[in-house]
């Protein structure tokens, strides 16, 4: 049977890992490729790079990182951040990304999702949704790192982008991101039950139980986390063993 996926995420700025693994045996903790290799060796099911570089000029460093990672890590790689044009997607895929995550550009121009899916196939188009709770059962999408409101309902948007061809949703709770209080499970479940594509839960993981909750209560089929893995609090292997013990199907090889 299919297994749920555990996806460590690396935030990359100007070619360097911003929040990275704090492993003593890493010679260069800011080197994204070195970090990717650690996660590869630990049995991560996928890797995610999120480029938070502000300037367009420094985009080339991201492409180098993707190339370097794809040369050494033979595992699925999702890359997001600043993807605005069909050319951006093509460059990332040719560099070695398997999936590309689109966020702001989809909101600015919703037909971009359909264009991208037609060109490259739904299987490589991920739409990232950053949502904040408005009231119980209602979430709105925000852009620009949670600073800009859009007036768009998160569940409606998830349905709309999947109808346009998105093959996966990367769902982040802006309320929980960075809090280590656990996923917004109501949000995760509302979106996961509303769409027919896989949903990755993100934002708020602080314990291994949170990962289990994202699957069992949130109905996500993948969980993404950054800090619990980066700061060496837990390894991917520990996370998988914990999930398996909780009855969640995981890959242990």
């Amino acid at each position: 049977m299919l297994k749920i996926r555990i996806i460590p995420c690396l935030d990359v700025k100007d070619g360097r890992v911003v929040k990275g693994v704090n492993f003593v045996d890493l010679i260069d903790a800011g080197d994204p490729v070195a970090q990717a290799r650690v996660y590869d060796g630990e049995g991560a099911d996928e890797l995610c790079f999120l480029d938070i570089t502000a300037s367009v000029e420094n985009r080339d460093t991201l492409y180098d990182i993707v190339r370097g990672t794809a040369e050494q890590c033979f595992m699925p790689l999702t890359v997001g951040g600043g993807v605005r044009r069909v050319e951006d997607i093509r460059t990332l895929l040719l560099a070695g990304a398997d999936k590309v995550s689109i966020n702001t550009a989809a909101i600015a121009r919703p037909e971009f999702v359909a264009e991208a899916a037609r060109k490259f196939g739904s299987q490589c188009i991920v739409v990232a949704i950053d949502a904040k709770a408005l009231s119980p059962g209602k979430w709105e999408i925000f852009t620009h790192g949670g600073r800009r409101r859009t007036g768009i309902d998160a569940v409606d948007w998830a349905k709309r982008v999947t109808a346009s061809g998105a093959g996966e949703i990367l769902l982040t709770s802006m309320d929980r991101d960075g809090t280590r209080e656990g996923f917004d499970l109501a949000l995760t479940r509302a979106v996961a039950d509303a769409v027919t594509v896989p949903v990755i839960a993100s934002g708020g993981v602080g314990t291994l139980d949170h990962l289990v909750e994202g699957i069992v209560e949130g109905h996500a089929t993948a969980v993404l986390a950054a800090s619990i893995f980066h700061f060496g609090i837990h390894s991917i292997r520990q996370a998988k063993a914990h999930m398996k013990a909780a009855g969640v199907p995981v890959r242990l090889e």
Partner: peptide, 24 residues
């Protein structure tokens, strides 16, 4: 029951598409 995490919803028997991830 074992597969229910991959269902579209708990009250649906349809599975999520694409088939995405690691399978044995």
């Amino acid at each position: 029951l074992v597969h229910q995490v991959f269902r579209v919803a708990l009250d649906s028997e349809k599975v999520k598409i694409p088939h995405m991830g690691w399978n044995d």
